[in-house]
Simulated assay, not measured.
Amino acid sequence: MASNTCGLTPAGAADCWGGNSYLQALDRPGPYTQFATGGSHTCGLTPAGAADCWGDNFYGQAADQPGPYTHLAAGPDHTCALTPAGAAECWGSNQSGQAADQPGPYTQLAAGLFYTCGLTADGAADCWGDNGIAQVADQPGPYTQLAAGFGHTCGLTPAGAADCWGLDQYGQAADQPGPFGLSIDGDGDGVADSVDVCPGTVLAGDADRPAQLKANRYFADAAGIFIDAKGTDSGFTVAETGGCSAAQIIAAAGLGSGHTRFGITRSALQDWIATLA
C-alpha cells in the first residue's frame, strides 16, 4: 500500500526511499523504535511513545500525536496506535469507520484500505471498517501477527502458517503453509514477534533505571539483562520474560509502587515467567 519504504538504523534514525511526492520518504534523525508507512505518509514511534508523522496530511493521517503508544499501524489515509492499555487510538480518514477508536485490548494492529484489525490477547483478529469483500470478517485464530492490504488480511499462526481472507483476485488471500515470520523482531528487543508478549519494548538502559534502585531489586539494562543496583545479574533476561521490561511487567501484573521506585523483585520476575509457560 505504501509508496515508500523506511528502514530503522541502529541509532534509531529513519532512512527512507521510494515515492516522495508528499515528502513521505524524507530521512528523519529520530530516534524511533518502530515505523508505519501509509499510502503517502510515514509515522515513527519515539522512545517516549509519541507518534511523529510526515507526508500527506489531507485527512489528518500525518498529524503528530503525543501518545504514549507502544505500536503504530498505517493505512492509505489513516493511522492507528496501540496505547499501553491495549486500546486502538486512530486518526485520519474515517469514511468507513476504519479510524474509529476501539477499547481492545490488543497486542498489535494492522491497517488496510478503509479498515483496521487488532490482534487480541488470545490471538483472535478483531476488525472494523469496510467489509465489502469480507476483509473485516473477525477470525478466531489463534494468530501471533496480523497484516492488512488493499482488500485482504492475513494472520500468522503459531506454527508459522499464513491464514488469509478477503479479496483474492490475484491469489493474495490464498492460505500458505509456511513457516513464516518466526524470527521477525519488530521492536528490536531480541524476542521474535511471534512470541513477544510486550510489543514495542524499548531497552533504554540507564534511562529505565529506577531512581531508588536497590540491591536485589532489578530492571532490564540495554542488553536485556535484569540487574540490580550493584550490577548483579538476576539470572533472567528479557528473552525469558516474553520481551517485557520491568516497567511493563509491573504495569501488567499490577505490582505496587515499591516495584516502580526500587525495582522489580526476583520472585516477581519468576512469577511473571511462570504465567508464560
Rank of each mutant, 00 (worst) to 15 (best):
N94H: 03
Q95I: 07
Q95V: 09
S96T: 03
G97W: 05
G97K: 03
G97V: 07
G97P: 01
A99I: 01
D101M: 02
Q102R: 15
P103T: 09
P105L: 11
P105S: 08
T107S: 13
Q108W: 06
L109H: 02
L109M: 04
L109D: 06
A110E: 02
L113W: 02
F114H: 14
Y115H: 02
T116R: 05
T116C: 00
C117R: 01
C117K: 01
L119I: 08
T120V: 13
A121I: 08
A124R: 15
A124F: 04
A124V: 07
A124S: 15
A125D: 10
D126G: 03
W128I: 02
W128H: 09
W128K: 04
W128G: 09
D130S: 15
D130Y: 11
N131V: 08
N131L: 07
G132C: 03
G132S: 15
G132D: 07
G132A: 13
I133S: 15
Q135E: 13
Q135K: 02
V136F: 03
V136P: 02
A137S: 13
Q139Y: 05
Q139L: 06
G141E: 01
G141I: 09
P142C: 10
Y143C: 03
Y143W: 08
Y143H: 09
Y143I: 03
T144A: 13
Q145W: 06
Q145T: 05
L146P: 01
A147N: 10
A147P: 05
A147G: 11
A148T: 00
G149T: 00
F150N: 10
F150T: 09
H152T: 01
H152Q: 07
T153A: 06
T153S: 14
T153M: 13
T153W: 07
G155W: 01
L156D: 04
T157E: 05
A159R: 14
A161R: 09
A161C: 13
A162G: 10
W165K: 12
G166I: 00
D168T: 13
Q169Y: 00
Y170M: 07
G171H: 12
Q172M: 12
A173P: 00
A174Q: 12
D175W: 06
Q176L: 14
P177D: 11
P177A: 13
G178D: 09
G178K: 08
P179R: 04
F180G: 05
F180K: 09
F180I: 09
F180S: 05
G181R: 07
G181V: 00
L182M: 13
L182S: 14
S183H: 11
S183Q: 14
I184H: 11
G186I: 01
G186A: 14
G186C: 07
D187I: 06
G188W: 03
G188T: 06
D189K: 03
D189I: 10
G190A: 11
G190W: 04
G190M: 11
V191P: 15
